[in-house]
């Protein structure tokens, strides 16, 4: 008989991330999350429409300070996220292995790619304006500039299968330009999203800039799409074509900018190749171009 009592493992409760806090769902509901082989992993909060509402309120509130911060400052905050992410690679490797059923080797290089992706986007914080902004030649005594500005509150439906690399690849481009985000995590693989929220919460990202909800995509998306205080939608993770169409229709009510789900496959189920070098598209999808005319000589 061993004289060492076997240690009782501490089970982690995965909660939502709203306004810098980790609340349970307002509805009190939760659901079971299984790993790639179908074994029970953990319980996750099942968000309701009221959690969507609260998340939008938090995102709206965070908007002025985040979009008003200097591009350099936003970049520094995002670099800091990459630093913290780097220090927790082990945890993310475990979670990706469990969620996506990858080998440890593959998962390790995937998590490395995640950190690199974040750094790549962080670098764009103070460079995008130079690339997509312009000084326009006009036929009059004016300086004429076009500068990018954030769209506002962006609802993001995260990719369903790529639970971490895909997630980071849709989230980082939204917030780097000064938007704030309400993110619906992958329905069946939500755990890496919540762990990412823990990284964000401990790395200088102001409360409310990113809000993460876990739960049923089909239940939450319509509320997010119809919400009049959301300015844009990234429907990346919507695998259901009918649901995507309905979301686009609801989004038209207040002229939200909509980034449609990938339609590489006829049934719209293919996810983009997240390992490929991203372009500027996901950043430029959620900016507004402001053109200023300034009289010369005043």
């Amino acid at each position: 008989m061993s004289d060492v009592t076997p240690r009782l493992a501490v089970q982690k409760t995965y909660k939502l991330y709203i306004g810098g806090r980790f609340p349970r769902s307002e509805s009190g509901r939760s659901y079971q999350v299984s790993d790639a082989t179908g074994r029970f992993l953990a319980n996750a909060a099942m968000a309701s429409r009221k959690d969507v509402r609260d998340a939008v309120v938090a995102a709206r509130k965070a908007g002025p300070a985040w979009s008003g911060a200097s591009a350099y400052n936003r970049g520094q905050v995002l670099y800091r996220v990459a630093e913290v992410l780097e220090g927790r690679r082990g945890q993310f490797v475990d979670e990706v292995v469990a969620a996506e059923g990858l080998s440890v080797g593959t998962a390790t290089s995937l998590v490395a790619a995640v950190v690199d992706r974040w750094v790549w986007y962080a670098g764009w914080a103070d460079k995008l304006a130079q690339v997509v902004g312009s000084s326009n030649p006009v036929a009059g005594p004016y300086f004429d500039f076009t500068v990018p500005e954030p769209t506002g509150v962006v609802g993001v439906v995260a990719p369903q299968s790529s639970s971490l690399l895909g997630l980071v690849s849709v989230l980082a481009p939204v917030i780097v330009t000064g938007n704030t985000a309400v993110l619906l995590a992958s329905e069946r693989r939500p755990l890496p999203a919540i762990s990412l929220a823990e990284v964000l919460a401990t790395s200088d990202v102001p409360a409310g800039v990113v809000n993460v909800l876990t739960g049923r995509t089909a239940e939450l998306t319509p509320w997010l799409a119809a919400h009049m205080d959301v300015n844009a939608l990234d429907l990346c993770g919507l695998t259901d074509t009918a649901l995507a169409h309905a979301a686009e229709e609801a989004a038209a009510d207040n002229l939200k900018r909509v980034l449609r789900p990938s339609t590489a496959d006829p049934d719209g189920r293919a996810e983009p190749d997240w390992s490929a070098e991203p372009g500027l598209e996901r950043m430029t999808a959620f900016i507004e171009h402001k053109t200023v005319w300034h009289p010369v000589g005043i």
Binding site: V52, R53, V56, W223, A226, H227, M228, D229, V230, A250, D253, N254
Partner: peptide
């Protein structure tokens, strides 16, 4: 209307 309203309106 059945959808959340926004202060912009």
């Amino acid at each position: 209307t059945g959808r959340y309203a926004g202060p912009d309106y």
